[in-house]
Design a protein around this nucleic acid. Sequence first.
DNA 1: CTCATATATTTGATATATCAGTTAAGGCGG
DNA 2: CCGCCTTAACTGATATATCAAATATATGAG
Lengths: 253, 253
Amino acid sequence: MGSAEEDSAERRPLNRRLAPNSGNPAAPNRAPSVASTIHARLRSEIVSLARKPGEPLAEKAITEAYGVSRTPVREAILRLADEGLVDIFPRSGTFVARIPQHGLSEAVVIRMALEEKSARLAAERATRSQVMVVQAIVEQLRESQAAGDQAAFHAADEHFHATLAEMAGYPGIWALVQQVKIQVDRYRRLTLPQEGRMQRVIEEHQAILDAVAAHDPDRAALHMNGHLGALIASVEDIRHVNPDYFAGGGHGD
Amino acid sequence: MGSAEEDSAERRPLNRRLAPNSGNPAAPNRAPSVASTIHARLRSEIVSLARKPGEPLAEKAITEAYGVSRTPVREAILRLADEGLVDIFPRSGTFVARIPQHGLSEAVVIRMALEEKSARLAAERATRSQVMVVQAIVEQLRESQAAGDQAAFHAADEHFHATLAEMAGYPGIWALVQQVKIQVDRYRRLTLPQEGRMQRVIEEHQAILDAVAAHDPDRAALHMNGHLGALIASVEDIRHVNPDYFAGGGHGD
DNA sequence: CTCATATATTTGATATATCAGTTAAGGCGG
DNA sequence: CCGCCTTAACTGATATATCAAATATATGAG
């Protein structure tokens, strides 16, 4: 239908900028705005636990620390709230979100559901060159292990999963996984690095890749579930860590 | 790192409101703020296609229409952008997002992965009373069909899936599904209501529920996939609808 | 008449000001 | 000394003002 509330007839130039689809192929809002900078910064600080769960998040302090006004800071905080990383209590205060205990196993279950599909489809569709790319990533894992570089190891790990989703033809799967796993990432910062984990992870990734290369969806799914299932165990026991960092319920999102 | 910028030593009352976890069990930010009202309203208008894909979204017009300032309107629009319902082109304009063509099948695939797990777990854990509740929901579907009430039918449909996720023990699954399916919902508004769809949907839901009641995870998963797989077909053929409402690429999240 | 440039306008991004609800401390009465 | 009420300070929510980039329209040269 038309539209037009009431007197908008003469007000609308009609042919004026009706579609940003010509020269702009995609990717709106990519500019490095102040707000997104603050958001990225705060997000990183929260995920890395530089800011402790339950800790108050003073808008004013952030404002001063970064030398910007409250508007972009507020924008960043609102987005963090949508991501479940901060809790805003309307006229009371804003706090770094506690890690939702039940939300952890839920996140892992969801991730398994998503990445099982990812592995299956990747196994069905993988081309030879794609397999080689992923093999290179696994090699990066080995190099990172040898160098004892945990950060590089983690980066390659994530790259592996992202690439698998891409091979499956649905990169959105990895985007969703990233969204879901964020609280688990925070949790893992609290636990001591397990001995031999890197070696185990490398072997699991190689097993997944082998199944994918062999175009064996069932086996790929099996190894993926085994790989992620290990998380379940580590997530189940929340003792020995500060219980003040946790909240009972799970997040709705 | 530690924390404490510089001169905060004497500034921090330390024992002042350090955790809103005592009297506030959960649910931060539930207040009906102006911003969330606008957001809900705009969201509804976009999903119902009252606002057409590609249409400009004038911040000023909304401001005047609702009699509020630009701040809450902007806040609402930013959230819509995060949800993928609007595209913001920084110094150019804001537009109702086009429906991502490839994103549709991706959304269905993701939904199948999630709800298959949902159905499986529900079948494993269902109690008798839970089954009865869901059977009542299916009955609501039949009543809505008889009354020809599409809105009620749709509401009961969603309630069915939400309840299944709850039975599975992971309500977050449904929350995720809702987030993912939103573009599909928009797409379906564009297509004519198919003859006999209601009847088919009822039967599929009943089949899922029967499998759940029989504690047969594999069969529950099978019927759930069959149920959602029907979406794939309807999503694949995007002809006969205004191609101007669609965008080529898929969305990130 | 066509095209390039200049100007005016629109818009989102940011800064600042104001408002109202909440919290916690302080004072008053019991 | 204890409890209720008042008050003061703080916070997030909203309103308003300003800024700079991008687009459209007007304008003038060719």
